Amino acid sequence: MNHPIQTPASNTAAFNQKRKKLFALLAVAVAAAGGGYGTYWKLVASHYVSTDNAYTNAEVAQVTSQIDGQVADVKVVNSQKIKRGDVLVTLDNTDATLNLRQAQADLARAQAQKIAAESDLERASIDLKRREALAGTGAVSGDEITHIKDAENNAHAALDAANASIAQSQARLDRTRVDLARTVIRAPVDGVVARREVQLGQRVQPSVPLLSVVPVQSMYVNANFKEVQLEGVHPGQKATMTSDLYGSDIVYHGVVEGFDGGTGSAFALIPAQNATGNWIKVVQRLPVRIRLDPAELAAHPLRVGLSMNTTIDLQNKS
């Protein structure tokens, strides 16, 4: 039986034909993949924008003392959960208590002075009426009546001074009561204690930070989207987020609340000066604030600064 002889030319032609078929199949596969991706982008992907440049944040409450004083007790530690009104720090109240007692004594003295002034005024008024009744008979001289009028005027002035002294003493008493109450520093909001710097025995002054309270129940997300992604983003749109802390199994749901007033670079300590000869355009990111669901936060608490993967649905609104 005779077999056809394979020549080099026939081998090359067969190889070229096979390669053309493979390239044709590859072109068909690429075209199909491109068409599929285009369809997916038009029907699905173009309706969402996503970023992994997102972080949790909260309106952290900074606790400071409103008066000078020495720390007598610190009742909280970092990471401790607290409720609004819980005692955080107490200051030595010895000076405040003494000032309160002094203010109470000053008020009592002013009130006694008022009583004496009222008595003097009443007596002077009675004397003046009696003298004026007798003036027509000539039994009382004009000088005597003038003297009684001066006494009445002086009693009026003493009463006015006593009333002013009472008002001043009352204000001082109210202030000392406030200062005494301020020796007990309480939590302004519910949350978790963070950055506790105050120590027992420390001398504190107003405006010096003692600790912070993070309201974890009011956490939100700052998602830094590229400026080219924000054309279709509007307040009220729904968003889904996952945290690196819990993984992709835990999904948070939120709502877009708004946009920051500027990009991060615009508010940097040293803003970029783009009016230079070697300027290179860099796509900027604008923080988008997203409100989280309080129930989901309660079930899976977050902390400030955690990374979040964020996707915004450009079609749906809450």
Rank of each mutant, 00 (worst) to 15 (best):
Y37F: 15
A151T: 10
D143N: 13
Q102M: 06
L88C: 04
L43A: 08
Q70E: 07
Q66Y: 12
D73T: 09
S218P: 01
K129V: 08
N222C: 00
V178K: 15
R186F: 00
N153D: 13
R303S: 11
L302G: 06
D52N: 12
L173W: 11
V89P: 00
T276L: 07
A158V: 01
V204S: 03
G236H: 06
L230E: 10
R177S: 10
R289E: 00
K226G: 15
N316S: 06
R186P: 00
L88Y: 04
A31L: 15
D92W: 05
A167W: 07
E296A: 13
Q168W: 03
V288G: 05
K238F: 08
G69C: 07
N2R: 12
G258F: 11
A27W: 14
A117R: 03
A117P: 14
S169E: 08
T310C: 08
A14Y: 05
L292R: 00
I82D: 04
D313N: 14
I280P: 12
Q80S: 13
G142P: 02
G258K: 04
Q6M: 12
T51L: 14
R203V: 08
R177D: 08
N11I: 09
L269N: 01
T56F: 09
A139G: 00
A135N: 03
S125G: 15
T310P: 10
K226D: 12
K238T: 15
A135Y: 06
A295P: 01
G254K: 08
T90L: 05
Y220K: 06
A275D: 15
L91K: 04
L107H: 05
A32N: 06
T94F: 09
L297G: 05
L107E: 12
Q168G: 12
A239Y: 07
G142K: 09
L98E: 05
V60Y: 09
L302R: 02
K21L: 15
T276N: 13
S218K: 15
A58V: 04
L230Y: 10
R289L: 01
T94A: 14
T51H: 12
R303C: 02
R196M: 10
W279C: 04
L297K: 08
L134N: 03
G35V: 10
V140A: 07
L210G: 05
N163E: 13
V71P: 01
S141R: 05
A96T: 11
V30A: 15
G277K: 11
D260E: 05
A72Y: 10
T39H: 11
K83M: 10
L159K: 13
A161D: 03
V30T: 14
G69K: 02
M241G: 07
V87R: 01
L286N: 03
N224F: 09
A27N: 12
A27V: 14
L134E: 09
G261V: 05
L286K: 05
K317V: 13
A162M: 04
G35N: 03
R84D: 12
K75P: 00
L210R: 08
V282F: 03
R195S: 13
T90W: 02
S141C: 02
S46N: 09
A27Q: 02
N278A: 13
A133T: 10
L107A: 10
